[in-house]
Simulated scan of single mutants.
Amino acid sequence: MTTTIAKFAHLQIPLEDVVKATDNFHHDNIIGRGGLGRVYKGQLQRSGELIKISALRLDRKHGGGVVEFWTEVSMLSDLKHTNIVSFIGFCNEKGEKIIITRHTAKGSLQWHLSKQNLTWMQRLKICVGVARALSYLHYDERRGYGVIHRNTNSSTILLDVNLEAKLSGFKVSIKQSLNHMDRVSLSEPIGKIGYVDPEFEKTKGATHKSDIYSFGVVLFEILCGREAYINNDPNRLLAPLVRYHYENETLHDIIHPDLLTQMSPQSLLKYSKVAYSCLKDERAQRPNANDIVEELEKALELQLRYENLVRPLFIFVIAFLFYVFYFIFRCLNTLNFEKYHKKKKKTLINL
């Protein structure tokens, strides 16, 4: 462990600075509770710049979490990508273990899905961002190794001020040789209920295709507007539910109704096809992250074309109807005006 700490010494941030940044871990600054402990927002002075941060403070009361802490530090210190949370540093002092990342102002995807406040276009862009992050983790050669995330779900996908996706939650990630990403890495079936690769039971481990399964669940969460697992629901698990509807061509029955009115049919077809393929039982039948990026980018492009065509057409129709009604109104007014004057003229003649 001493060697590990020395390797990351340049990333250490004094506890005093973190305490000051979070106002002594004031409860008003709590923005979440992760698997390791509470997350605090704050402002940290670094190299003359005031940075908005999120500080994940390891919960010391329950003990444990040390391995996960160093795993997260190790992973984040190496990962640099637009769609992965930005690592600032860590604190390991006086019994405190704290991971500091750049603050993502809009919170988690899970929170936004519960509020139903995202358009279909926004959802598509978020999906493309997460797919790019997984592609980077699985295949980026500059790093020299691949990463199996093992924790992809709607709560570990964070959104910045522009609603761009930032993948977080690397506490249980595994490094894997780029040439052996299909090789099973033996482990316990870690992850939130509803997202765990069912192949774990057969293989007793994970591959990069386990991330693909989890992402497939997220894709359908985004499409249907419901959680991956609902405890007291007859259809507790989302994955088998969407597979049933997709295979029986009744997917429209469970898509969130607010989204149906916004979608390009071609975009939905492309999106649902790739999402369904992620949930295949056999890992070999699931697409890889690069293929998913390509298909989701096509779905986004189809939606953009649709909106660029439909919006001007909608404006034209509204404008046309406005002028039609305006013309009718003017004609009726003119007709009524003439009738009024004729009637007035008759009255004057009779007088």
Results as ranks from 00 to 15, higher is better:
88 I>G: 04
53 I>R: 10
21 A>P: 00
127 C>V: 07
93 E>S: 12
29 N>C: 07
60 R>W: 01
43 Q>H: 13
102 R>N: 14
121 M>D: 14
89 G>D: 12
121 M>Y: 03
101 T>N: 15
80 K>L: 03
73 V>G: 05
69 F>L: 03
99 I>C: 11
89 G>M: 09
33 R>K: 15
95 G>S: 15
54 S>W: 06
57 R>V: 15
74 S>H: 07
103 H>G: 02
17 D>K: 15
54 S>N: 09
39 V>L: 01
131 A>S: 12
105 A>H: 07
31 I>A: 06
67 V>H: 04
124 L>P: 00
74 S>M: 02
103 H>C: 15
83 N>Y: 01
121 M>S: 14
113 L>I: 10
21 A>R: 09
99 I>F: 01
14 P>N: 12
104 T>K: 02
74 S>A: 12
95 G>V: 14
81 H>P: 00
118 L>N: 10
39 V>S: 05
23 D>Q: 09
52 K>M: 08
131 A>H: 05
56 L>W: 00
111 W>V: 06
39 V>K: 09
83 N>G: 06
60 R>P: 06
112 H>S: 05
83 N>P: 07
91 C>E: 12
35 G>A: 13
53 I>F: 12
83 N>V: 07
90 F>C: 14
60 R>V: 11
89 G>K: 02
57 R>A: 10
74 S>N: 14
90 F>G: 11
75 M>Q: 05
48 G>E: 01
79 L>R: 03
40 Y>G: 07
68 E>W: 04
69 F>S: 03
64 G>P: 03
78 D>F: 03
24 N>S: 14
116 Q>E: 14
93 E>H: 13
119 T>L: 10
13 I>F: 09
98 I>R: 13
66 V>H: 01
46 R>L: 11
59 D>V: 08
108 S>T: 15
106 K>N: 15
26 H>F: 02
116 Q>A: 15
44 L>A: 08
72 E>C: 03
51 I>K: 08
